[in-house]
């Protein structure tokens, strides 16, 4: 399949300089609105799920607007379903455009996945078969989203629990093809790479190493859990616990190559006290300081 050979390096637009600071940020949760506003912790930026703020009014939007005055914000979408064979939901695009204008985020991102079938929203990020058809559909939808927003978006690699018989290329190859066909950037979720690598038996380091540093606009870090099905351990990306040691090690490996990048601490279930999130963010900041300068690799622990 000639048209699917990775050509990202040659065709992709480089990431513009620092739409978010090259520091750790945290996912903003309603439980922490007041405390963040009151204490204004020293964190680089905040991220929210766009769909939670697509309302016409009410307190949540007021909180986000108030916090936006103090921090850069990244809008992370979970509902565009760019991988759906059907057309994108035009009303949803309109709401995202309105939110983008209101919040003026550093980045707008979405997932390399799909979640809408026959008009039903499944509230799940489902992997695509990596085929020529999927590539055409996905890339066209990314272009449509970027045209509507009039900006480059980032596409995040998903956690996956299954693969398809008819996939013809690997996920990182597919992602790089999307980049070259749409001009989007990459949101690289290190935990998702680790979870999928475990679930499907590939090498997470090789995956990370395939993504050129200049394409990465943002990094995600999160905790996951494990469940046993029929004697086999499956890792589930539930964002409900601290980031595990192996994922921190992968992060160090990545940062040594890429230098510091905006890095999100994602925590969406069993949400802990703000201090716990700030602690994880401080850890990421420390790794970026220690390992992020390309000349000082030796200073890095481990």
């Amino acid at each position: 399949m000639d048209q699917m050979a990775p050509t990202a390096q040659s065709l992709a637009s480089p990431i513009p300089s620092s739409p978010l600071p090259n520091r750790a940020g945290i996912g903003l949760k309603a439980q922490h609105y007041q405390e963040i506003l009151d204490t204004q912790p020293n964190i680089g930026w905040l991220e929210v799920h766009s769909e939670n703020y697509m309302c016409t009014g009410g307190p949540t939007l007021k909180w986000l607007t108030a916090l936006r005055e103090r921090y850069p914000v990244s809008l992370h979408g979970v509902g565009m379903s760019l991988g759906s064979a059907g057309p994108l939901d035009q009303a949803h695009i309109k709401r995202l455009v309105d939110l983008d204008r209101r919040i003026e985020p550093g980045w707008v991102s979405e997932h390399l996945s799909w979640s809408i079938a026959d008009g039903v929203y499944l509230n799940d990020l489902i992997a695509l078969p990596y085929t020529a058809e999927s590539l055409d559909v996905f890339s066209a939808h990314v272009r449509e989203m970027q045209d509507a927003l009039n900006r480059q978006v980032l596409i995040e690699n998903p956690s996956s629990y299954l693969r398809y018989e008819h996939s013809v290329i690997s996920e990182p190859e597919f992602l790089l093809n999307v980049v070259s066909q749409s001009g989007c950037g990459v949101l690289l979720d290190v935990n998702n790479v680790y979870v999928s690598a475990h679930n499907h038996g590939f090498d997470p380091v090789a995956y990370l190493d395939q993504i050129p540093a200049h394409l990465i606009g943002e990094i995600h870090m999160a905790g996951h859990s494990q469940t046993v099905i029929d004697g086999r351990t499956i890792r589930i990306d539930d964002h409900g616990s601290p980031i595990c040691g192996e994922v921190w090690a992968l992060y160090e490996h990545l940062i040594k190559r890429t230098g510091p990048k905006p890095t999100l601490i994602e925590w969406d279930t069993n949400i802990p006290a703000l201090d716990v999130l700030l602690g994880e963010a401080a850890k990421a900041d420390a790794i970026m300081t220690l390992c992020g300068q390309r000349e000082t690799h030796r200073a890095c622990i481990g």
């Binding site: 309603a30 799920h49 939670n52 859990s225 494990q226 589930i236 539930d238 964002h239 409900g240 994602e266």
Partner: peptide, 18 residues
């Protein structure tokens, strides 16, 4: 902060569930 009812928490998430 104490629990729920009076104020909303987020309904959209990009996480799965175990």
């Amino acid at each position: 902060k104490a629990g729920h009812n009076d104020c909303k928490t987020e309904t959209s998430s990009c996480a799965g569930t175990a």
